[in-house]
Amino acid sequence: MTTTRKRQFLQRNKSSGDQHSGIIILLLFFLVLMSAFNIVLYLELFSFSNSASQPISPSGAAVSTAKNTGEASILILPRPESAQENKEEEKKTTNP
C-alpha cells in the first residue's frame, strides 16, 4: 500500500469513527429520555394503585355510612287572652 492510499484509508476510517460517536451519543440521549419517561409513568402507576387500594378492604375492616337528616319543628304562640293581657299591661305602663 502506498503512503497516499494509506492516508486515504485512515481518513475514511476516521470519519466513520466520528459518525459512530455521533450515533452513540444520539442513542444514549434517547435512552436516557426513555428511562426518564418510564420512571414518570411508574411513579404515576404507584400513586394510582396507592389511592385505589384504600377502599378495597378485603378484610372487611372498613365501613361505609349513608346519612340522612330529618327535622321536627314546632312554634308555640302566645295565648290570645294573654296577648290581650300583655297589651293592656303595656298600655298601663305607657299611659298611667
Binding site: P55, S57, A62, V63, S64, T65, A66, K67, T69, A72
Partner: peptide, 12 residues
C-alpha cells in the same frame, strides 16, 4: 326544632 341525622352503616 331538632334535627335527627340517621346513619346507615355497612361493613365496607
Amino acid at each position: 326544632s331538632f334535627r335527627l341525622t340517621f346513619n346507615g352503616t355497612s361493613p365496607g
